[in-house]
Every structure is written in C-alpha cells, then in structure tokens.
Amino acid sequence: MQANSLVLDHVSKHFTQPNNGAALQVLDDIALNIAPGEFISIVGASGCGKSTLLRLILGLESEFEGQILLGGRAIRGTGLERGIVFQDHRLFPWLNVRDNIAVGLKNSPLASAAKQQVVREHLALVGLERFAEAYPHQISGGMAQRVAIARGLVNRPSVLLLDEPFGALDALTRARLQNELQRIWAQENITMVLVTHDVEEAVFLGDRVVVMQPNPGRIKRIVDVGLPHPRQRSDARLVALRDDVLGDFLDA
C-alpha cells in the first residue's frame, strides 16, 4: 500500500431520525481505494449520500461503520492533511482575501514568515494577487471559490476534498474554474476527491468516476476514464463517456 493512499474500507453510515428514533441508512458498504495523486469524481443524484461521505473523510462526522484510512492510519476527527472546498465558499466575511487564506494556516507548525510566503504563493496559484486586500462581499462568487480553493490548499494537504465546489456558479465561470482546478491538480500533485452532480464535470476532471445511487447511498459502478490530462472538453471519448454515465441516471 502506498504512503498516502486513501482507503474507504466498507464504510456505512446511519442517521437516527429525530421524529421516531428509527435508523436511516445513508451509506451502504462503500469500498474504494484511492491512489496518491489520483483525481476521483463521485457523481450521484441528490440524496445519494455523496456529501455525507465527504464529511466522513473530512472528519466532521465520526460515527460510522467501517474504516477510513489515510496512509494506512485510521482518520480521527479533522486534520490539516485533509483540505476541503465547500459549495458555499464559507469565507469569513470580516477577513480580507489574504487573511481568509491564512485561516488555513492558523495551527500550522510553520513560522510566521513562512506562512506569509505560503499565502502569497497560493494567492498567485489562484491568480488573485491583485485582490489580496478585498473582502469577500467585494469579489464575485467565482473569485470567492478560488479563495476557498487556496485556503484548502495552503497546508499542502495530501487530500483535497471538493463538495460540489462549482455548483453555485454560472456555466461560464464553472467551466473556467474546472480548467483552473485541472491545472492546479497537475501542478500540486495531490489527491483530489470531487463530489458533484454534474456528470460532465465528473468525467472531465476525474481519473475515475464513482457513480452512486441512493436509498441507501451505495456505489453503482466505477468508470475508468483513462484519458491523459490536460483534457479537451470536446474530446469525442469524453463526450461518449459522459453519455454513458448519464445513461445510469436516465434509466433509473
């Protein structure tokens, strides 16, 4: 097993329903081995538990069956080696762009000068050097999401989790940020797990696409994309794969 592989070892999750106390199963026996540096897309209709799965990997929810291993060790709670980009950017409105990125480094062991340097590098990585002093309400949704990506990456996590990161953006901005994410992934060489309901996005970015189905949330199949990055959206093989995966949802 490789150093920083992420292993989902037969993960299941139940919620207790507040009204009658009955257990509701949201994830059923999710088994997945993710290699270091791999880009995994998880695609599914809403309610298939894909966001819950991400919260388990992130460590925000600690009650589940099975194991989640990162580099061979079971995860416990949240940790700086796992970064996250949420759908709503979740920037602190009272901090400017630079300070919002630095939020990720608050508890990093780096010295203060090194932190400043890392923040500068990540401002450059997402192309926002000129907006370092701007506040979240002064920038567009796409820019805010780029800040969130930078914040997720400042700790150089071994895994970056992305929970429908572009779901709230318009189509043009979304396409541009997908390209940017592809470039950042190639440049930083870290594992990324992207949860999305956009099949085209899943296929365009993922090395593998995990198709999930609901009630309870489980893996329907795993599609190997097998095309080199960087990719072209118009690539006939991508389009064919997209239609193939889309078929999974239209049949049901």
Binding site: L60, T78, L80, F86, F92, G104, N107
Partner: peptide, 11 residues
C-alpha cells in the same frame, strides 16, 4: 458552516 471551517483547521 463557519464553525465547521474552524473545526476543519483545528481551531
């Protein structure tokens, strides 16, 4: 959601 961000970064 903002408190969750704090948890993610080990506050």
């Amino acid at each position: 959601p903002l408190l969750e961000v704090a948890r993610v970064y080990g506050y």
